[in-house]
């Protein structure tokens, strides 16, 4: 049994991670953390850097759940990476963070969350950032 979380270092991402840890614990499932980047920009603030990874691991070590952390850089969208990883690990639940967007903004930018919601084979839990 696996719970998978698409993590980015933002309030939404943190909320998703919190919830995913709680879900993994209550289901006594393994937690898979995916933090992906297309790797086609010079600067990607959604990609966790080495000191951030250290902090993240420390945090996860502190929780009593088994976890794996993946940081794929493969030229694919984060949505694809999350969906691929979910299939690979036979995840029963995907947790993602949702950001408030105007309809126009969504039209232009597309949405990682939307693609995951529509294409995932398993249940998807979308959480919002704590206010």
């Amino acid at each position: 049994m696996t719970v998978l979380v698409g993590y980015i270092p933002t309030p939404e991402g943190a909320a998703a991670l919190d919830r995913a840890i709680a879900e993994a614990r209550s289901r006594s499932a393994k937690l898979v953390v995916v933090n992906a980047s297309r790797g086609d920009v010079f600067v990607d603030d959604r990609f966790v850097q080495s000191d951030g990874v250290e902090a993240l691991r420390k945090r996860l070590d502190g929780e009593d759940v088994a976890y794996e952390l993946f940081q794929p850089i493969g030229g694919h969208d984060s949505a694809d990476e999350v969906l691929d990883a979910a299939e690979q690990h036979g995840a029963e639940l995907i947790v993602i963070g949702l950001r408030r967007r105007t309809p126009v903004g969504k039209l232009i930018m597309g949405s990682t969350a939307q693609r995951i919601l529509l294409q995932a084979e398993c249940a998807v839990l979308a959480v919002k950032a704590a206010k």
Binding site: G39, F42, D44, D45, F47, Q49, G52, I73
Partner: peptide
């Protein structure tokens, strides 16, 4: 190309 992105 540097594949691994940096963060500001």
């Amino acid at each position: 190309l540097r594949r691994k992105p940096l963060s500001t």
